[in-house]
Write a protein that binds this DNA or RNA. Sequence first.
DNA 1: CTCCAAATAT
DNA 2: CATATTTGGA
Length: 299
Amino acid sequence: MREEDSNWFSRWKEQLPSPEELMPLSQSLITPDLALAFDIRNPDHAHHQHPPPPSQPSLSEFAADSGDLGYGAAGDEPTRTLKRPRLVWTPQLHKRFVDAVAHLGIKNAVPKTIMQLMSVDGLTRENVASHLQKYRLYLKRMQGLSGGSGGGCANGGSGGAGLGVSTDPATDRLFASSPVPPHFLHPGSRANSEHFLPFVSVPALQHHHHHQQQQMVAAAVGHPHLQSQYHRPQMGHYVSSPNSQFEHPFLGRQTQQPMHRIGGMPVHNQAASSYVEDLESANGNGGRKVLTLFPTGND
DNA sequence: CTCCAAATAT
DNA sequence: CATATTTGGA
């Protein structure tokens, strides 16, 4: 039964290019400072910095919603009084996360290292740590269900066992979308995949820290105000098979650019040629908007 | 310092 | 409500 392990590994290794490829993948999360500082408001100068590299979809798109929070908005440069916007873990980003973990090995798979290997600018340890926890839980959960480990109903109760066996506790939605490679989980058979830890070159990490505009890629800003419950068209049924490649519910849907009215102020929204995922839902009560775009040429 | 678990905010 | 962030403790 371990053969499977080898299997996934070979597949994985194929898909895993090399750290070099991974490395350059530096994504930059939109940093709040930048977002606000740079910001989006420039009704006059359409100076858009068009770095739209036609060849490579590396764009920096910021989705900044006007914060109606109480800070002085324009003209003010909040140096450090910024709140961190909600980070949205996109499948791609998650994938990177998984990749990093897989390559690091369970041993080094600590938040810090992962974060470093991910090289996602803007990503913080907290982000990774939190996500990592969830990821682990997800894996553990799967183990228990799929492996059947032993007895069958060892699950003690947690989870009210009687529910459907399907793996859709709703919480795994995100994780399920990603090809969970690392099956380094399996207690008992601990395969150290570190056999092949060819390179862990994370050369440039803490370098340019200047406020220069780096390449920002993913931007996610959760705009609060008003609680809103966004709901997908019914509970998503994209329950892809656990092993099937991930199918994106979105991807492939280029929504137009709806005008965002923020507090009555039209916001200039520029849609880059990148994947722009926008989920919006309008509820009678309010609307929650989330913009996430990722130029991850990965996968 | 890292991980875990829960509370809180969005 | 679900998700992500954040706090507190081991």
